[in-house]
Nucleic acid binder design. Structure first.
Lengths: 199, 199, 199, 199
DNA sequence: AATGAATGAGCTTTCATTCAT
DNA sequence: AATGAATGAAAGCTCATTCAT
């Protein structure tokens, strides 16, 4: 979900290796239009990579690429979560920051793209590889939020449920934001979540 | 999401017209594997419809079919919502019934399919047709829940937000249930939602 | 192995249906360069058929086409056998005629092509379909020769072995003719075979 | 056609050089599935050779490798012929031994592979290189048989024709054995051949 | 003599759609 | 309203080969 633009930092950055260019291009395209909505040739042309190189770096082709792309995108999401909660003084503040960052990201795209995990893995082939990887990445997101929840004083017996609740709100809220073409849905999520621990 | 089995009511039911068979087949396949994951030929063969008949009933082809299929599936969802809240004595009971019905439906499939609107419309072509129809159907679900919320005593100034909250929890919860291959996620949703109005 | 030229008989013959054009083109190309040596696109361009039509007429694609092409080619070979033995006064005369016809056919091509069954089926995928069809066609050739052998007075207890002997000589002789680029090998086959019944 | 197993003679044999491993792997694969049915990457992986090494040992790539592989396989065949005829007391005994050895070899494989020369050279590109090499190897086989025929008393004016006859029977018989999945065809070949010199 | 990344043409097949009847 | 043949663009993937090291 976060992207580093290697072209805008310095004038002549060293070009990324082919494999990394493929992963970044795939992550962005799969997030935007889904696993089945993107052809490998489009990934290749966006990555400026020749046709044969995909299968050199990803012997199983598109599915291998999707796994790598979702991992890379998930790492970006984990950094976004950390960047939201680390400077926060309480958990609720972190939630607000995270939701606002997500809303900003939503606005920066075409307002129709999806979540990098959902669009890439849930839509792909229903193989055990994909299911297991989806679960692993989803659990990673939730664990990261739970970690910050505990650290910021959420009672231990509520931290896990709160993290899951936030996950569901973000995923469901993202879809509602798409349906309404309105990122404010995401900005209002903290109000729904806070009620959890309201007495 | 709900299905009527025309084969189990009477021994020799009149077969459905071709158009309806196409809609039902498309709704089930799109829900299960997504708009881009299903080819029209598969829909035709599942519907036992001849090759050329698709474009007679749906002049714009696959996209028209997807719009009709999502409408039909959404009608089923509206009936499921009504069936959950109408006999309920309070809103929370209706939520519990709805979530349990959804969990049961989740278990009855391959635990990897999606929501009929999401899988069919959000994954499809990013045209205004699809966006508008997605919004229309999503708003219909939320309005139906809101209607029952008001009817069952939820304060007017909370009904809309509660209905939206439930929508997001169901969508996000469905995804978490998929990732964990565990329908109990859906059964636990009411606990998250009830806190809204808990004092 | 025999071909009917639909372009040289009359000035404006009705064009063959697409399916037949595909079969003829495939038979000729597979015979000449083998199953794996010919791409479907080459068959399509030779048959002047559009890309998608192959899978309309042959749902299993290249392999289905190969089975049909080998059947068609085998029918031509059966006609060649019949045309050689039917006017013959004795079996040996028929053998001489057949071998001379084959030698002439050999010379008419690039002297490097193979037998339509061998090149198409033995070289193809090692599936049971291909093996069974190869056996069926080979047995058909041998049975046809055996039939004429009996009819022309070869003792019943020798007819089958003689037909098999001729089959092996033709197949082995064709390969030797290819290796030496010399069709006379085929013309000399009768001398080898006749010894069977020479006292 | 014959193989030397470098793993069963001593416990820790020195591994063959890369070039020899490539030749052996190619010979076996080409024999089994034909020149066009085998990719160089499969040869490399079977030979446990690194990707780039093929073009060091065989500058012209696959075609060079095929020539070398067919030569190596042909040498094995020449040894098989010699081993069959050298201990024989008469030519017919040698033929029987040879055909039985071939039948045993046929049974030891998947009953669908071909002759190492035929599958490798006849199916390959129709270049003069391949044609000339095929002729050279085929003539070598026939000359070897003819040599033993003369040595074992076959009249000089029949030796060459007999050797050619045997060649054709073996090639044609091998194909019939494949079609019928029955190696006995090869064991019965001597009966067909012997008639040549029967008075 | 050896290596593995790179290369793009080519492979078989599926796609959604249109056509003539 | 209905049909099945026709269509060619595009799909994912493999190919034999070349390159820089």
């Amino acid at each position: 979900m976060v992207q580093t633009c290697q072209d805008c930092v310095m004038s002549n950055p060293p070009p990324l290796p082919t494999k990394d260019r493929l992963i970044r291009a795939a992550a962005e395209l799969f997030r935007s239009r889904g696993y089945n909505g993107v052809g490998v040739s489009e990934v290749l042309s966006r990555a400026k990579a020749p046709k044969g190189s995909l299968y050199h770096h990803f012997p199983n082709g598109k599915s291998d690429l999707a796994l790598a792309a979702s991992t890379w995108a998930s790492d970006g999401m984990l950094r976004l979560i950390a960047a939201s909660f680390e400077p926060a003084e309480c958990f609720d503040d972190g939630v607000v920051t995270l939701c606002h960052k997500l809303a900003k990201f939503f606005d920066s795209k075409d307002m129709w793209g999806g979540c990098p995990i959902t669009s890439t893995l849930f839509e792909g082939p229903a193989t055990e590889d994909f299911r297991a990887h989806a679960r692993y990445l989803v659990d990673g997101w939730i664990a990261e939020v739970e970690h910050h929840a505990r650290r910021l004083g959420v009672p231990a017996n509520q931290a896990a449920a709160t993290a899951e609740h936030l996950y569901m709100l973000v995923q469901g809220g993202w879809q509602l934001a798409k349906a309404r073409q309105q990122s404010d849905v995401l900005r209002h999520l903290p109000a729904q979540l806070n009620t959890d621990r309201r007495q």
